[in-house]
Write a protein that binds this DNA or RNA. Structure first.
Length: 475
RNA sequence: GGCAGGGUAGCUCAACGGUGGAGCAGAGUCUUCAUAAGGCUACGGUUGUGGGUUCGAGCCCCACCCCUGCUACCA
């Protein structure tokens, strides 16, 4: 049995998850379930990025200890996932000092041993009020930060560790050009490539302990420095599968077969991460699936606009599979999409209530009348021709489109056959052919709408099929 | 500014250089097994603008106008 290791981007856990997180989790979950359907040994890892200074500050603001603060938000992410029917096989937290700290330190040491980590002085404009560095572009016309206008920024020099990314210029270019790391969609690969071609510079990977307030993973053999995001957050992908604490487990799952990420963090996943792994002499991820962002009713989601969608609200109102269906069917997986509740109800009524739900109800009722039951084994393969291809290409909407074409075809067939006018002997074989087709639909739906698929598979595999309460009542 | 993606029906999107299609919404009609559901039919477009290449352009070339993203050591 081949293994399949999938990850989705490690979120910051400084706020409740929104609909965009839900979208990413759903994508990863569909991939996970699809590969289970292919009888692969699948592992899906996600986790929490908890060591950033922002987390520390947000906790302070909320008058909580960082641990209390992150515990709460971790739980919120896990709750949303559960309600979306998403199963993380592993949820790896960055604050896990038992596993994650040594794991990240090991990664660091491997790169250091390879000569790719060095100390350099970093000079920047530092705002004492914000306790952080700013780039010139981030400042107002007077060269002051927006939080503290009127206060001059200090030019501060600090010794930090750097990672020798420049050394991997050619390596990375080849990695992407030859699709050794396959990026979907293609134009995102080109974006990363054009970035590489402009020339890669080394990047900073540590902060002074003082500036990081001692919050984070200590740099090996230098207690005055704390790791800065990259060797910490990205390495969660490795910690969770045993890196640094269970080599056999690590060998089993590494490398990542698919990384699911949003378009904002390509550079880190297509460039930084492969370079770090290559430096450490570790196996590289095989593919990167980049999805777009969601707007809400055509507008950017933002706290100030107050249009942030809480997935829990949507699930409470419309159900898990409805939200999953909307995200998977209505939004092209690689482009930006729009979340609109009005549109969601339209799609719900058209596709789920009138389409799938009604078909299941009408066939079930006809079967009940003639005491028809399942006459064949449950499907073990999907019978739609392009289904596998679409899923391999992360074209979830196209795979679903194919299934819904079949739903429409069966409706047409029923209207033509008029089974309600037939004598029992003639009706039974006709109805049984519908049952078989519906079972195939349900089987193919498993990665997308697990609850619904399960209900249908159960209902239509009985020796005597009877009508049930509607799967999706009209709204 | 540079690079990339996009601008096609009311909405979401398709269309190897060869008569611009589908789904949803709205309209009419047939049917009753089903969740006032289903089928069928018609309606619906000067393909962002202006040029050019071509027998033929949504597609290729030029110019321009919009929208989105990237342009690093801030996630």
């Amino acid at each position: 049995m081949s293994k399949f290791y999938i990850t989705s981007a490690i979120p910051y856990v400084n706020a409740k998850p929104h609909i965009g997180h839900a979208q990413e989790f759903v994508y990863a979950d569909v991939i996970r379930r699809f590969h289970k359907l292919l009888h692969q040994d699948v592992l899906y890892l996600c986790g929490a990025d908890e060591n950033a200074l922002k987390i520390f500050q947000a906790a302070e603001k909320a008058q909580k200890t960082p641990q209390e603060f992150t515990n709460q938000h971790n739980q919120e992410f896990l709750d949303v996932a559960k309600k979306l029917d998403i199963q993380f096989d592993i949820w790896q937290r960055g604050s896990d000092s038992i596993k994650h700290f040594p794991s990240s330190q090991k990664l660091w040491e491997l790169c250091e041993k390879n000569g790719d980590i060095y100390k350099k002085s970093y000079t920047g404009l530092y705002c004492v009020g914000c306790e952080q560095f700013y780039e010139k572009e981030e400042l107002n016309e007077n060269g002051e930060c927006f939080e503290h206008p009127g206060r001059k920024l200090d030019e501060v020099s600090e010794e930090n560790y750097f990672f020798r990314l420049s050394k991997y210029q050619d390596f990375l270019e080849e990695l992407l050009t030859k699709n050794l790391l396959k990026v979907t969609p293609e134009f995102k690969k080109n974006e990363a490539l054009s970035f590489i071609k402009k020339g890669l510079q080394d990047f900073s990977i540590s902060r002074s302990k003082e500036r990081a307030r001692g919050w984070g993973i200590p740099v090996p053999n230098d207690p005055n420095q704390i790791m800065y995001v990259w060797f910490d957050a990205l390495n969660i992908y490795q910690t969770g599968i045993g890196f640094g604490w269970d080599e056999n487990l690590y060998k089993k799952w590494n490398p990542q077969d698919v990384m699911v990420i949003g378009k904002g963090i390509i550079r880190f996943h297509a460039i930084y991460w492969p370079a770090i792994l290559q430096s450490a002499g570790l196996a590289l991820p095989k593919s990167l699936f980049v999805h777009g962002y969601l707007t809400v009713d055509g507008q950017k989601m933002s706290k100030t606009l107050g249009n942030v969608i809480d997935p829990i609200d949507m699930i409470t109102k419309y159900g898990t599979d409805t939200l999953r269906y909307y995200l998977l069917r209505e939004i092209s997986s690689t482009g930006d999409g729009d979340f609109s509740e009005r549109r969601l109800t339209e799609v719900y009524n058209a596709d789920l209530a009138n389409g799938l739900g009604n078909l299941v109800a009408r066939v079930a009722k006809l079967c009940e009348k003639h005491q028809v039951g399942a006459n064949s084994e449950l499907p073990t393969k999907v019978s739609f021709s392009n289904y596998y291809m679409h899923l391999e290409n992360f074209e979830f909407n196209l795979a679903l489109e194919e299934i819904w074409r079949e739903i429409k075809n069966i409706d047409i067939e029923i209207n033509k056959d008029q089974p309600w006018t037939l004598e029992k002997e003639k009706a039974v074989p006709v109805l049984q052919s519908y049952v078989t087709k519906i079972l195939h639909i349900a089987y193919a739906l498993q990665p997308f709408l697990p609850q619904t698929a399960e209900k249908i598979l159960h209902q239509f595999s009985q020796t005597s099929i009877i009508s049930q309460i509607p799967l999706f009542p009209r709204i």
